[in-house]
Design a protein around this nucleic acid. Structure first.
Length: 473
RNA sequence: GCUCCGGUGGUGUAGUCCGGUCAAGCAUAUCGGCCUUUCGAGCCGACGACACGGGUCCAAAUCCCGUCCGGAGCACCA
C-alpha cells in the first residue's frame, strides 16, 4: 500500500481545544458530498484531539424528513465519524430570540412589515426602508407582535443590519427571522417565528464555542454576513475554511428528486444504486474507508472539482480485494455438453493469496456445463481452458476434453470461468439500475453480506441467495 | 447586471503565501512488460500538465496587469 496523503495543518490550533461541527439539515440521508464535510471535520478533530458537534439544522419545517434525524446519525456511524455532542437547532429557539432581542436593542437589527419586494429593490439601490431607521423601541414592539402571533405568515420579518452600501449586494441587510405556520415535525405549532440559517448558524457557532469551521465555498457570502453578528457582539471569530464545489456525475443527489422518484416507484429506495447516497454506497459494497481516503486525498482546496468514481473504485478495490472471496458467476449462461472420461476433482481457493484459505471442491464428470454467452461467441472453434479444470476444445454446443497441460497457460490459452452444478439463479443490480442475470456458484452463499470477487465479472455485494449489487469492476 | 472565489497532465492532488533546488512530485486512469490457473491483485516501465497574452526580475507554476474559462452569492432554503 502506498503512503497516504495527509491534510494540511489548520492555523490557530491548540491541541485539545479545537471545536468543530457538522451541520446537516435533516432533509434526507447523507450523500457522498456530505461525506466530504463530515470526514474533513472528523479528521481534524481526531488529529487535534478536539470536540466534534453534530448540529442538525432543522429551522425550515417545510424541508424536513422526520426519519432523517436518525438516518444522518446512522450514516455518520457507518462513515466512522465520531461526534461527541448532538445539538438540534429546533431546541434553541429561546436562545435565538434572546440574541435577536439584544440586537434590536443595540439597533443592529429591525423588524419590518414592508413587502419584501420593496425591501429587496431598495436594498439593491442601497436605500433603507422606513423601519431600518426606527428607534429600538418601535422595532422591539414589532418584534413582540411577531412573537405573539399578531402578524400572519409573510406580514413581518426581522432583518440584521450590515452595510447598505456594501459593494456586494449579496452582503447587504439580510433577513434573520420569518413567520412559518407549517407545523414542525419535532415542535409542532409551538413556534411561529423561525430563524434563518445565517442567524442560527452565527449564534450557534459562537455559543457552541467553535474554533474552526470547514464548509463549502457556497457559504462564502454567508460567512461574511455572519461575521456582522459576531462583530456586533464582539465575539471572537472561528477560523473559516471554504472548500471548492464538487460536481458529481452519473449520480442523483438532490433529495427533492430522490423523494419524488421513490414515491413514484422509479427508485427502489434511498439505497437505489443510481443515487449518490451513502446508503447506496453501502449497499453496493463501497467501504467507508475508501470514501474517507478519497476525501482526505482530495483535501481542502478551494478549486471546484469533479468527483471521480474511478478513483473511489480504485481505493475501494485496494481495501476489499484481499478480503473478497472468489467465486464464479456465469452471466447469460449457455448450456453445453461436457465431454470427458471419468471424474476430475477440482479444488479452488476462496482466497488465492491467503495461506489458510478455504477451498471450493467439486467432482466434475461428463454432462452439462455452463459458460457465458460472451465467451461462447468469442472462443467457439478454439481451444480454451476452464479454470482449474482442464483444457477443452469449444465446439458448437459442446466442450471436448483435451488434456490438463498447465504449460498451455504460459502459452496464453484463454482461461474462462464455468459452472457444472451447485449453482443458483442470481440477479445483480448494476449502478445504472439495470439487472444482470446468470448463475452463481452456490458456495458464494456462505459469504452473504460480503463483497465477492466474481472472477472475470467484477466485485459484487452478495445481499441474499438471489440478489447482489454490483460494486465495481 | 453587480460582488466574490478560483484555473497544474483524462481525473484528483503537491508545489504558489516567503520567485531559483520544478525542463514540475504523488495517486488514479491508459499503454507496455513481469508475475499469477481471473479481463482481479501485486511488481516494473512508459505516456501525459503549470488556461492565454503582456510585464517585473539575472531568474516566474510561483509576483503584477489584461483576456478567456469555471464556480458561488445577490431566498421569508440550508
Amino acid at each position: 500500500m502506498v503512503e497516504e496523503k495527509k491534510l494540511p495543518d489548520l492555523p490557530n490550533v491548540e491541541i485539545g481545544k479545537v471545536v468543530m461541527r457538522l451541520a446537516p439539515s435533516p432533509s434526507g440521508p447523507l450523500h457522498i458530498g456530505h461525506a466530504r464535510m463530515a470526514i474533513l471535520n472528523d479528521e481534524y478533530v481526531k488529529r487535534y484531539k478536539g470536540k466534534l458537534i453534530l448540529r442538525i439544522e432543522d429551522t425550515n419545517p417545510a424541508n424536513i424528513l422526520p426519519e432523517a434525524y436518525k438516518m444522518i446519525e446512522d450514516d455518520l456511524k457507518w462513515l466512522e465519524v465520531d461526534y461527541q455532542e448532538v445539538v438540534i437547532q429546533s431546541d434553541r429557539f429561546e436562545l435565538y430570540y434572546d440574541v435577536m432581542e439584544k440586537l434590536i436593542m443595540m439597533e443592529k437589527a429591525y423588524v419590518s412589515t414592508t413587502p419584501t419586494e420593496i425591501f429587496k429593490a431598495k436594498r439593491q439601490q442601497s436605500i433603507a426602508i422606513n423601519e431600518r431607521n426606527d428607534p429600538a423601541e418601535s422595532n422591539l414592539r414589532r418584534w413582540d407582535k411577531m412573537l405573539n402571533g399578531e402578524f400572519k405568515k409573510g406580514e413581518a420579518y426581522a432583518v440584521i443590519k450590515t452595510d447598505l452600501t456594501h459593494p456586494n449586494p449579496a452582503i447587504r441587510d439580510f433577513i434573520a427571522f420569518r413567520i412559518i405556520e407549517t407545523p414542525h415535525p419535532l415542535k409542532g405549532n409551538k413556534y411561529r417565528v423561525y430563524p434563518m440559517m445565517n442567524f442560527s448558524v452565527a449564534t450557534d457557532d459562537h455559543f457552541l464555542g467553535l474554533t474552526h469551521v470547514i464548509r463549502g465555498k457556497d457559504h462564502l457570502a454567508n460567512t461574511e454576513k455572519q461575521k456582522y453578528i459576531f462583530n456586533y457582539f464582539g465575539w471572537s471569530l472561528p477560523f473559516y475554511l471554504h472548500y471548492g464545489k464538487v460536481s458529481i456525475e452519473n449520480s442523483i443527489l438532490k433529495t427533492s428528486i430522490i423523494k419524488k422518484g421513490i414515491a413514484n416507484g422509479e427508485f427502489k429506495g434511498w439505497d437505489d444504486p443510481r443515487l449518490g447516497t451513502l446508503l447506496a454506497m453501502k449497499k453496493r459494497g463501497i467501504n467507508p474507508k475508501a470514501i474517507r481516503r478519497y476525501w482526505v486525498e482530495t483535501g481542502i482546496g478551494d478549486v471546484d472539482i469533479k468527483f471521480s468514481w474511478e478513483n473511489l473504485y480504485a481505493f475501494n478495490k485496494h481495501i476489499i480485494d484481499p478480503e473478497s472471496p472468489r467465486h464464479f458467476f456465469v452471466l447469460n449462461p449457455v448450456k453445453l455438453e461436457l465431454i470427458l472420461e471419468g471424474i476430475i476433482k477440482v479444488k479452488m481457493p476462496v482466497y488465492p493469496k491467503k495461506e489458510d484459505t478455504p477451498f471450493r471442491e467439486y467432482e466434475i464428470r461428463k454432462g452439462q456445463v455452463y459458460i457465458t454467452q460472451e465467451d461462447y461467441n468469442k472462443f467457439i472453434g478454439k481451444e480454451i481452458r476452464l479454470k482449474d479444470l482442464g483444457n477443452f476444445k469449444l465446439e458448437e454446443g459442446k466442450l471436448q476434453y483435451i488434456d490438463n497441460d498447465l504449460s498451455k497457460i504460459k502459452q496464453g490459452i484463454p482461461i474462462i470461468h464455468w459452472l457444472q452444478s451447485d449453482f443458483v439463479d442470481f440477479e445483480i443490480v448494476k449502478p445504472d439500475g439495470t439487472i444482470d442475470k446468470g448463475i452463481l456458484e452456490k458456495h458464494a452463499l456462505n459469504y452473504i453480506g460480503k463483497v465477492n470477487q466474481l472472477e472475470r465479472y467484477g466485485y459484487t455485494n452478495i445481499l441474499n441467495e438471489k440478489l447482489g449489487y454490483y460494486t465495481h469492476p
